[in-house]
Amino acid sequence: MPLNKEQIAQRIARELKDGFYVNLGIGIPTLVANYIPEGVDVVLQSENGLLGMGPFPFEGDEDADLINAGKQTITTVPGSVFFDSAMSFGMIRAGKVDLTVLGAMEVADNGDIANWKIPGKMVKGMGGAMDLVAAAKNIIVAMQHTNPKGESKLLAKCSLPLTGVGCVRKVVTDLGVFDVTPDGFTCIEYAPGVTIDEIKAKTAGRLTIAADVKEIAV
């Protein structure tokens, strides 16, 4: 069975290390916060101006002045701090954020990412994605392996306008976990019940299979 969204988030959460400052994008990346491993203390950065993002508020405690970058009502945690957008992107640009997790429409086997525009169809804007991918030390993409038409989203070259070049380090999809290496995508783990042949068939970019490839523990 391919991983569901929660399981993709759960797998990415294992990449978190104690002391990390982490920026989670909208969609599957947001779910990563629900699976932070025991004993791992991370601080979540929200680029609209908060370090130390907490869970959603209890019903009735929503505060219009306290939202995340997805415009959802949230809470703070002990040690939280607010700042303005220039400082927020200043800390991102200066490489202080250890890990960025974001969604994508396409990823190329050299680490290029496209996730902000479909010409003539969808033009919502890049938000903070271009700033994050240009600067973050470690970028993990969370996405479905194929688009709704069944076409691979792991490509030799992105067809959509780029968000950033050569920046993605790892991709976690419903089918597996892929490192972006000089040789293209390297499959290091596969979802339970998913075959290597299926992964090969659904990956359009250069793909190698790690010698010690293993099943994702779900």
Binding site: E47, S85, A86, S88, G90, M126, G127, G128, M130, D131
Partner: peptide
């Protein structure tokens, strides 16, 4: 880009004509 937007505002407020961004 959002950070560029913020920083171009900041540059104006700090009296800097331009900034170099990634």
């Amino acid at each position: 880009p959002q950070g560029t937007l913020a920083t171009r505002c900041m540059a104006a407020g700090y009296g800097m004509p331009a900034v170099y961004l990634l």
